[in-house]
Nucleic acid binder design. Structure first.
Lengths: 252, 252
DNA sequence: CGCGAACTTGATATTTGTCAACTAAGGTGG
DNA sequence: CCACCTTAGTTGACAAATATCAAGTTCGCG
């Protein structure tokens, strides 16, 4: 199972085999996009919904002074603009960071699915709610954690999220962003981002080179970051029937 | 029409008279809550959904050092924990700031509505998506705007949101938060929050006293703040049929 | 009258940004 | 094969924004 959408949504919703087939069909038609290309721009009213199947993309807003605020990272399995099917107009832009594989799903298909496929609709909604929860945690990071802890927290989150969709080992994952881009994510200047990474390296909390992040001791990084993964809602829950409890996040 | 939920959801969805009646019925049974009381705590699995009908409440997370990060303000018409009906567990807490009127809607009612009332379900989803959009804008503010602009931006947003639900005049609204609480919203120390307010006062951008905010020149404050209201998605749109275009935000 | 909460002020410390310069690695055209 | 260019990463000196600490002030209320 390599379809990241299914891997992700299974974390929060019960999908039947037919549901999975349906999701696979929706995302069968894909295309490749080069790094640093806009997928959607603020003000657009796209006619389809884009889903990232591989690579890193981001939501961003441009500020009056010309700088770019990256307000979320879109990983494999993430919907870029499901909300626009309901809200109508994009209030931010979306761009690739690395080379990406993307699928386009027509709005009509989505709306039909919302009307006639309540279980899948609920799964999609669940996915959106997790995104919202992540946005809230980023707000906490940006406002209340200093640079070192903020960066450490992000690295913990990314490892976790990528493991869910089978894109990370137990302690490492791709991270194909430049330090300048990481600064745009964490609201830090490029210079300070660089010094922050050096701090974490000096403490042996991370190894970050050649677009890859390795974490020598995940528990120690989590402790340092004050990371608690509850906001990712990864604990697979059974809604009546079946064994109650936790499913571990995949190990490689 | 004083029901803030209806006033708010009408901005984004077409509600029939029956829909409005249904919403009124859901929120007929209310209770009063004193200021600074927790409504829901992180980790809770409440059996109903709480809606603010009057007053100010907030989402917050407690940090290891004991300080409180307020990550959103809940105004009349806002659902406190609709997401928990789907996500299962609260990843943050909710507390009143002022005295509040709150309605409780059982989960079963919500879930039934999601299954059998697609138009209302979609309206609720729209409301959640607007909340998510606001969270994204707060992230931009907190990360990329300095204290003066951040505060000004918040005041613009609050005036706008309160006008939609009939809780503000064209240029003023209640704002029953202490400066310390505003600091918890804007990720500023109490001292710096105080100085920030003084800056805005010196520039005649705001009048803030006795729990009330007045804005001498709304356009000037918006310009100063770099405020563009697109992220609030208040432009009432007609989805096929009816006059195309914009409905003004209510004047008093 | 006295007390507590909210607000205000000044002095100082810490965090982060800005500017300018420099290194290292990779690609490309001559 | 090399000169040149670009991009990413790094460093130091300094400036700006914000936090912290400590000490008032103001005002409503018991």
């Amino acid at each position: 199972m390599r379809n990241p959408i299914i891997l992700k949504l299974q974390r929060g919703a019960h999908l039947t085999d037919e549901d999975c087939d349906e999701l696979s069909r929706l995302t069968a038609d894909t295309r490749q996009i080069e790094p640093r290309q806009d997928l959607i721009r603020e003000g657009d009213r796209p006619g389809d919904v884009k889903v990232v199947l591989d690579g890193f993309a981001c939501r961003y807003k441009l500020l009056p002074n010309g700088s770019r605020a990256i307000i979320s990272l879109l990983l494999p399995g993430d919907f870029c603009d499901l909300h626009v099917a309901i809200l109508g107009e994009m209030d931010h832009s979306i761009a690739t960071l690395s080379r990406c594989t993307v699928a386009d799903i027509p709005h009509a298909t989505i709306l039909d699915l919302l009307e006639n496929h309540p279980r899948l609709a609920r799964a999609l909604w669940w996915g959106e709610l997790v995104c919202e929860s992540i946005a809230r945690e980023w707000l906490v990071s940006t406002g209340w954690r200093d640079a070192d802890h903020r960066a450490a927290h992000l690295f913990c989150e990314l490892l976790m999220r990528l493991r869910v969709v089978g894109r990370a080992t137990i302690d490492s994952c791709d991270l194909p962003l430049t330090q300048a881009e990481l600064g745009e994510v964490l609201a830090l200047s490029t210079v300070h981002m660089n010094r922050t990474i050096q701090h974490l390296r000096e403490k042996d909390l991370i190894v970050l080179q050649d677009g890859r992040l390795s974490i020598p001791d995940v528990g120690r990084l989590q402790t340092f970051a004050g990371f608690t993964p509850n906001y990712l809602h990864l604990t697979k829950r059974t809604y009546g029937g079946g064994p109650e409890g936790v499913a571990e996040v995949g190990r490689d």
